[in-house]
Simulated assay, not measured.
Amino acid sequence: MFMDREKERAEASAGREGHLAERLIGDRADAFEEARARVEIITPLSIELPKTALPASRELITFNGVAMAVASRPLFGPLSFELRGPARVAIGGANGAGKSTLLRLITGKAQPTGGTIHRHTDRIAMLDQHVGLLDPGTSILDNLRRLNPELSTNEAHAALARFAFRNRVALQIVDTLSGGERLRAGLACVFARPEPPLLLLMDEPTNHLDLTAIEELESALRDFDGALVVVSHDAAFLRAIGIEREIAF
Score class of each variant (00 low, 15 high):
M1C: 10
F2M: 09
M3E: 13
K7I: 11
R9E: 13
R9Q: 13
R16C: 07
E17L: 13
G18W: 06
H19R: 15
R28E: 13
A29R: 14
E34W: 03
E34V: 14
E34R: 14
A35E: 14
E40D: 14
I47V: 13
E48N: 12
E48R: 14
A53F: 13
L54T: 08
I61Q: 04
I61A: 03
I61F: 00
F63R: 01
N64M: 11
N64Q: 14
G65W: 05
G65F: 07
G65Q: 04
V66G: 05
A67F: 04
A69P: 00
A71E: 14
A71R: 14
A71Y: 09
R73A: 11
L75E: 08
L75C: 06
F76S: 09
L79S: 02
S80A: 05
F81W: 12
E82R: 15
P86R: 08
A87Y: 10
V89Q: 01
G92S: 14
G92A: 15
G93C: 02
N95V: 08
G98R: 10
K99F: 08
K99V: 12
L102A: 10
L103R: 00
L103W: 08
R104G: 06
G108P: 10
K109T: 15
K109P: 02
A110S: 15
P112F: 02
H120R: 11
H120K: 08
M126R: 12
L127S: 01
D128N: 09
V131F: 09
L133W: 07
L134N: 03
D135A: 14
G137Y: 06
I140Q: 05
I140H: 05
I140C: 12
N143K: 08
N143F: 05
N148G: 10
E150H: 13
T153E: 14
A156Y: 01
A156R: 06
A159F: 03
A159V: 05
A161V: 07
F165S: 00
N167F: 10
N167S: 14
Q172N: 12
D175K: 13
L177E: 04
G180I: 11
E181Q: 15
L183P: 04
L183S: 01
A192G: 02
P197Q: 03
P197D: 03
L198C: 09
L199A: 02
L201F: 00
M202L: 15
M202E: 01
E204Q: 00
P205N: 00
T206V: 04
T206W: 00
L209W: 01
D210E: 05
I214Y: 03
L217E: 07
E218D: 08
A220D: 08
L221R: 01
R222K: 15
F224I: 05
G226T: 04
V231R: 08
A235M: 10
F237M: 04
L238Y: 04
L238P: 00
A240G: 07
I241D: 01
R245A: 15
R245V: 11
E246N: 11
A248F: 11
A248T: 15
F249P: 14
F249N: 06
